[in-house]
């Protein structure tokens, strides 16, 4: 059986691995790199708990092979905090109580980051559309939307001051 030498930049750091063809990216992240912030929920491409950013775009890491990520940039929830400071999206989820059990939160936050990167001022409808591939079974969507709105305002303010 073929294995492959892969190189992936994960949260800004170059990582290497020797992987089987069928190894899913989520398993590579969780088991090989021990980055367990990326969750496995449904395992059938529905729930979005395993969402990571692939070159800045949210993808479901349970439906992507580790070997496909060779040569690409991956961001997981562990990569959001910078220099001990929470990302505005993380701060938003904290301030607005955007989570109950927390299981969907890493995926929700990464999807929200990607949304805010391409649209700094999304409407409520745009936020709800963007996170429609991330399921929160606590049904905490009202506060999740508020958390993203908080982050959008914070990012806009930071940019106005910069």
């Amino acid at each position: 059986m073929a294995t492959h030498r892969i190189q992936i930049t994960v949260n800004g750091e170059a990582k290497e691995g020797q992987v089987e063809s069928r190894l899913l990216l989520v398993h590579f992240l969780r088991e090989n790199l021990r980055l367990t912030g990326t969750h496995i929920g449904c395992d059938t491409s529905h729930c979005g708990a395993c969402t990571v950013l692939l070159d800045g775009q949210p993808v479901k890491s349970c439906t992507f092979l580790a070997v496909q990520a060779d040569g690409h940039q991956i961001t997981t929830v562990e990569g959001l905090e910078q220099n001990g400071k929470l990302h505005p999206v993380q701060e938003g989820f904290w301030e607005k109580h955007g989570l109950q059990c927390g299981f969907c939160t890493p995926g929700m936050m990464l999807t929200s980051c990607a949304l805010l990167n391409r649209n700094r001022n999304p409407s409520e409808a745009e936020i709800r559309e963007a996170i429609s591939g991330n399921l929160c079974r606590c049904t905490g969507y009202v506060n999740i939307v508020k958390a993203v709105q908080y982050a959008a305002e914070k990012l806009q303010k930071e940019e106005a001051h910069a």
Partner: peptide
């Protein structure tokens, strides 16, 4: 088609 995250791939 599916959801926005799936549509990225």
């Amino acid at each position: 088609i599916a959801d926005p995250i799936v549509r990225n791939l």
